[in-house]
Design a protein around this nucleic acid. Structure first.
Lengths: 253, 253
DNA sequence: TCAAAAGTGTTGTTCATACACCCATGA
DNA sequence: TCATGGGTGTATGAACAACACTTTTGA
């Protein structure tokens, strides 16, 4: 009995090695959902217009092939983010890996999806430099799904290349689920070393897609972040329209 | 300005295609953390002893190469689980993708890790059939990390092949975080169509690694599952040692 | 003085926790 | 009868939500 099983396992092991050479190795890409906020605190995403086939002239999230053996997946994503936006040192987390054989018509492409959160305004210049190839789109939700729009273009989730609408939906859902017990929102602040409670609240409202009560938000913020020392009260104020608002600073970055 | 950028983008696009053929394509495997409970409700994991290099004779989590073009990642994981345990139709979820270039000494291997939760006792026969090649190990936690042990062998997390200890830790952490707001625990029941509150409570205790208060657990269970109709009261009891316990049945599977 | 936004305080509800106590069974 | 685990009820405090009210600025 044991002997029989050992032979069988050796066989299985051989077959595995055989598989590795027999079956075509897939291409592996990292694709990035790059999210930021615009001047009116709406959630925006960076999309690029594809220059080549497949899905030529379709909008897609940026991505590129992994340089196998030369970089890790995280490094590939960071490199891609940098080449697309000239930004580094931002929140960049692996999201999910997509591998349906038919998701790319050319060949099997495994896509390791990442999500990047970019501080407010940081992407403005880049997106404006060539409006035809890489643009920020405001994200809205409607009966038939997500709508991406800016002053030039309006597209729906069905217009996107590959399964990118699925990836984007997962990113937004993940972000929304995480925001209540992780510090993700701070990554979208204009300046995490000088921000007001209202600024932070607007980010939560955007991501959760509903309005929040300011007194209660303040209470929770003071308890979870200031009392625990993660955020310090700068004891300065900044003038805006009504009463000047107190400034806070996030520690540890 | 625009013209200059367009040329540059075309160039970038060309380079990406060039990369895809220039750099070696990585191998892609699916590796599975298979968790179940033993007779005393301790968390167990299925490990296999590697027959070939690298890490020959080391224990590892089961896995195999993706048959690119023939199956999706989910299908590859399900096929691997079936071949290793002869079990299908169980909880099987993608966990994370590992891609450090040096994680496999042979070549770049991208590992898409999955987690499987197998109902209690279902793996008993298989693991016993050949104790040398595939065994269940009880998971314990100690100062220096996780300890895997059964009646034959005791190993520590450092004895495992590749970065598999990292994968296992992530699986346990993920499970522990999910269990409070997802229904994952039901997948570990001996029989989800006939179970008692105590049985379910013991699963929560195992995963959270602390004891729970039965009256409070019952209250939460009745509110979250029975009142909402996800679980029905079978209005039957089963005898055990003290007072007979009421049986419940999970709907929708 | 008024609008606007920041900030404070109060109240009621829900939920988690701790725990005292009763119930039904086998031995 | 007693031990054992199942099951019920109650008290306490924390967290959350709703909202009335005050403060400080610019116009």
């Amino acid at each position: 009995m044991k002997e029989k099983k050992r032979v069988s396992d050796a066989e299985i092991d051989f077959l595995k090695k055989y598989d590795a050479s027999e079956y075509e190795r897939p291409s592996v890409t990292t694709d990035i959902v790059i999210l930021t906020l615009d001047a009116s605190d709406a959630l925006n995403i960076l999309l690029i217009k594809r220059g080549g086939h497949p899905y030529k002239d379709c909008w897609a999230i940026p991505g590129g092939f992994l340089k196998a053996g030369q970089e890790s997946l995280d490094e590939a994503a960071a490199r891609e983010l940098k080449s697309e936006t000239n930004i580094d040192n931002v929140y960049l987390k692996q999201l999910y890996t997509f591998g349906r054989p038919d998701r790319d018509p050319r060949t099997t492409v495994i896509s390791v999806a990442y999500m990047a959160l970019v501080p407010k305004h940081k992407l403005d210049i880049h997106a404006g430099s060539d409006a035809k190839d890489a643009q920020l789109f405001r994200i809205r939700y409607d009966v038939n799904g997500i709508i991406f729009s800016n002053e030039n273009t309006t597209i729906t989730e069905n217009d996107l290349a590959f399964d990118h609408s699925e990836i984007i939906k997962m990113a937004i859902t993940r972000l929304r689920n995480r925001i209540d017990y992780e510090d993700d929102a701070f990554n979208l602040l204009r300046d995490s070393s000088e921000f007001t409670i209202s600024e932070l609240k607007r980010i939560y409202e955007t991501i959760k897609n509903r309005s929040l009560d300011l007194p209660n938000f303040r209470k929770t913020f003071l308890r979870d972040y200031v009392s625990s020392g993660k955020v310090v009260d700068l004891e300065k104020t900044v003038i805006s329209k009504g009463k000047p608002a107190r400034l806070y600073k996030l520690l540890d970055r």
